[in-house]
């Protein structure tokens, strides 16, 4: 094979491979992207039921009630609107009332059925989406960065209503 054709072979193989990979990615983006929504979005009715979303906000104070066999019921709030959440499974270690949380699942008859709940590894940390959501709702107060040290001040100045 001449050098030129050989190089062409390599380029062609690489081109086909990359095209296939790009196609895969486009179709996967189409199907597997999960949008982030807030309780406010749900209250305004902008959410299609049955579509998979991520719901972020704070776990409302005194809203966590365990049911039978691992079912947990709690309320996610952006301090203005609230959404009831049902979740079967293990809550992460850092899941606490008043803390930022992200739940993934679908909305069914106004109740959010979550199959995944994410809280963070560090109790001072709030997911940027959640803090944005609370800012959007106009309820954001920045308090001192370090809390009071006893770890109980997890509400970060956004006391549940």
């Amino acid at each position: 094979m001449k050098r030129k054709y050989k190089r062409l072979t390599f380029v062609a193989i690489a081109g086909v491979f990359i095209a296939v990979a790009a196609g895969l990615m486009l179709s996967a983006f189409e199907e597997n992207i999960v949008f982030f929504r807030t309780p406010g979005d749900i209250a305004s009715g902008a959410i299609e039921e049955g579509r998979r979303i991520r719901l972020g906000g704070l776990v409302a104070e005194e809203s966590v009630t365990p049911g039978a066999d691992g079912l947990v019921h709690f309320v996610i709030t952006d301090t203005v609107d609230t959404v009831a959440v049902n979740y079967v499974g293990i809550l992460p270690d850092l899941f606490r009332e008043g803390q930022g949380v992200i739940a993934e699942g679908t909305l069914v008859n106004g109740v959010f059925i979550a199959d995944e709940v994410l809280a963070k590894h560090d109790e001072n940390y709030m997911p940027p989406e959640v803090s944005d959501a609370i800012k959007e709702a106009g309820q954001w107060y920045q308090d001192g960065e370090h809390g009071s040290g006893d770890g109980e001040s997890g509400d970060n100045g956004t006391e549940g209503q």
């Binding site: 491979f17 179709s27 199907e31 597997n32 982030f36 991520r54 989406e129 944005d132």
Partner: peptide, 21 residues
């Protein structure tokens, strides 16, 4: 300004077929 998350389903759908050959 739309917030999305790209999670395991995306990566599994893309990554696995790419590395299989």
């Amino acid at each position: 300004g739309d917030k999305v998350s790209v999670g395991a389903p995306f990566f599994e759908a893309v990554f696995i077929p790419i590395v299989m050959p």
